Amino acid sequence: MQYTKHVTGTKAKLKIYCDEFNERIRVDEYSGNFSEITRLIEDSAREHSAHKVIIKARAEQLLNFLEKGYVLEAVIKGFFAGSDVYFLGKYKTEARKMSTHWEKSEKIFSDVQDLKQDTKNPLHKFQLHKGEVKDAERLAALYEKVFPVYPVPLHDPEYVRKSMESGTVFLFIEKNKEIISAASAEVDMLNGNAELTDCATLPSYRGGGMMKQLLAGLEDELVKRKIFCVYTIARSLSYGMNAAFKQLGYRYGGRLVNNCYIYDKMEDMNIWWKDLSQE
């Protein structure tokens, strides 16, 4: 079960994303007395038996959270309507803290660092389609084929439909009426940012540059909406996804250890970000 709830104390309040599937809670917003903020966070972690606590912290409270034992894992420039966000983590179990694939992730990251920004026109330009409610079942079918496990229930057409209705933009490429590659942008109009996510390509069609074209298409759509802070949270074990964002000019922001269940296990996730106003 995954849902957002508001927690209110006498001198503080929080907006918390409760994620039982991934055994974590994420504090998306907080205000008020700092001591009460941290107490409410700890109470919520115990209530939900969270193995990891994630906080989207602002610069003003960064040192205070570090003094409480939180660890800085990643940064995104301009996330809060121009102000930076600091992803902080605290682990409640030893197993959740220990990354079991760190060496492989580091090798992939090192290899990706050698890539240059790719500004060449692709050999083949694919036609991009904007997802509509009627496409939800075909999109869900793609995600079910690509991801045995995913942090959110993208294999459920109803979930995809609700995502669209809440403002998420899907772009996809199809062949013979089958969607073979897709990606989405979850737009936060209030803070002026968007997460590029739900990137999936059928195995037999990978390597043809489709994903980079989808991501570039989403960037164009976001600029039209005056959304300039764009980021992604990519599997650290996926060379292809990390390479795609590096070649598109994204900057590495850090790694979230044992962040979520994806593909077939609990994995570390790399953050990449970009300021589209500088393009």
Rank of each mutant, 00 (worst) to 15 (best):
M1F: 10
M1Q: 14
Q2T: 03
Y3P: 05
T4S: 15
K5A: 11
V7Y: 04
T8R: 14
G9S: 02
K13D: 14
K15D: 05
C18M: 00
R24W: 06
R24K: 14
D28M: 11
S31I: 11
G32K: 06
F34P: 00
F34N: 00
S35A: 07
I37K: 01
R39D: 12
E42T: 01
A45Q: 10
A45S: 15
H48F: 12
S49D: 14
H51F: 13
K52R: 14
V53F: 07
K56Y: 14
R58A: 08
A59W: 04
L63P: 05
N64M: 15
E67S: 15
K68T: 04
G69P: 06
V71G: 10
L72H: 14
E73A: 13
V75Q: 13
I76W: 00
G78V: 01
F79P: 03
F80R: 03
S83N: 10
V85L: 04
Y86R: 11
Y86V: 14
L88W: 14
K92Y: 09
E94A: 10
A95C: 01
W102H: 08
W102Y: 12
D111P: 07
D114T: 07
K116N: 15
Q117D: 12
D118V: 05
T119L: 15
T119Y: 07
K120W: 05
K120E: 15
K125E: 13
F126E: 07
F126T: 01
H129D: 06
K130W: 02
G131I: 00
E132V: 09
D135F: 03
A136Q: 05
A140H: 00
Y143H: 13
K145R: 12
V146Y: 06
F147N: 09
Y150L: 10
Y150C: 07
P153V: 00
D156V: 01
R161G: 03
S163L: 13
S166A: 11
V169Q: 10
L171F: 14
F172C: 08
I173P: 02
E174K: 00
N176C: 04
K177R: 09
E178M: 05
I180H: 00
A183S: 07
A185Q: 02
E186G: 04
D188S: 03
M189P: 06
N191I: 01
A194V: 01
E195P: 08
L196M: 04
T197N: 09
A200E: 07
A200N: 12
P203I: 01
S204K: 09
S204I: 04
Y205S: 01
G207L: 06
L215Q: 13
E219N: 11
E221C: 08
L222Y: 05
K224N: 14
R225H: 02
F228I: 02
C229S: 02
V230N: 05
Y231F: 09
A234P: 00
N242H: 11
A243Y: 12
Q247M: 13
Q247N: 03
Q247E: 15
L248D: 15
Y252F: 15
G253F: 04
R255F: 06
V257N: 13
I262W: 03
I262Y: 02
M266L: 11
E267S: 08
M269T: 08
M269K: 08
N270C: 14
W273E: 07
D275A: 04
